[in-house]
């Protein structure tokens, strides 16, 4: 497996107070990595730092062998996509137009009229099960559908690395599972690595190749779900006492 993102000794702080401390991690092609931790443990900040939304960190963030700061903004958008939590969309684009915006980094100066582009977008909408409301106004679909449209928009960037920032937090359980299946399906096929920030621990443990647990801005543990899974882990990371019902087929946290 080829490594595509490597973070070494990353330090970052707001107002000179260190917030992220000594973060080290690697992401390989096609991997699904979940980032978990309490609110305020630094998950979203880590994502912001990697994506250049906040500057001034110490350490190294290497994307495909290059310092990420040296990659041009638009070139980065050709490789890395981010899907944020559901938001209130105020403008009246139809879903097809929103998904087409994902092609912007690749087709900066032209409108989407070429047949190959239309086919590409149509394909992605088919994969994400959004084609049936392609012509619908984005304000007139349900939350789950909207999030799938925005996922399609992110996938239209043809990313090699996809970040999900609590992208499934507002969704009900069936929409969540459906979305996760789509992401796994598409990303495994294209070799896209996924870094998924989430609060749904069951989903994280069931579907990820690796899990990063953050605690107070530091990596508490980083590894395969089955290796991390024990009562002490939950006590340390989330301050809760839980029992774990765990066999080869499934696991369950009992509160």
């Amino acid at each position: 497996m080829t490594e595509i993102l490597k973070i070494e000794n990353l330090y970052f702080g707001y107002d000179r107070k260190p917030f992220l401390k000594n973060i080290c991690l690697e992401v390989n092609e096609g991997e699904m990595i979940s980032v978990i931790g309490e609110n305020g443990s630094g998950k979203s900040t880590l994502l912001k730092v990697i994506n250049g939304l906040v500057g001034g960190y110490k350490g190294k963030i290497i994307y495909k062998g290059k310092d990420i700061r040296k990659i041009k903004h638009l070139d980065r958008a050709k490789e890395i996509a981010v899907l944020y939590q559901n938001f209130d969309y105020k403008f009246m684009f139809n879903c097809f137009e929103v998904v087409s915006m994902g092609l912007y980094p690749h087709r900066k100066n032209s409108i989407i009229t070429r047949k190959e582009d239309i086919d590409f977008i149509t394909n992605i909408m088919e994969l994400t099960d959004t084609l049936q409301f392609a012509n619908k106004n984005i304000n007139h679909i349900s939350g789950g559908q909207l999030q799938r449209v925005l996922l399609a928009r992110a996938l239209a960037q043809k990313p090699k690395l996809l970040f999900l920032d609590e992208a499934m937090s507002g969704l009900d359980i069936s929409a969540r599972i459906e979305m996760m299946e789509i992401i796994l399906n598409v990303c495994k096929k294209n070799g896209t690595a996924v870094v998924n920030i989430l609060h749904d621990i069951n989903l994280a443990f069931e579907k990820s190749d690796k899990i990063i647990a953050l605690k107070n801005g530091e990596v508490y543990s980083f590894g395969k779900p089955r290796d991390l899974l024990n009562n002490e882990f939950f006590r340390e990371v989330f301050n809760v006492e839980v029992d774990i019902d765990y066999n080869k087929k499934y696991f369950r946290i009992i509160l």
């Binding site: 994506n51 250049g52 939304l53 903004h73 638009l74 070139d75 980065r76 958008a77 050709k78 890395i80 996509a81 981010v82 944020y84 938001f87 969309y89 105020k90 403008f91 684009f93 137009e97 929103v98 915006m101 994902g102 912007y104 980094p105 900066k108 409108i111 925005l150 928009r153 992110a154 960037q157």
Partner: peptide, 20 residues
């Protein structure tokens, strides 16, 4: 015009699409 379209997605998303 296309940049203006993308700006409506919100700053963080627009940024991730390569719009300054």
């Amino acid at each position: 015009a296309r940049r203006l379209d993308i700006m409506t997605l919100g700053d963080s998303t627009a940024d991730s699409l390569g719009v300054d």
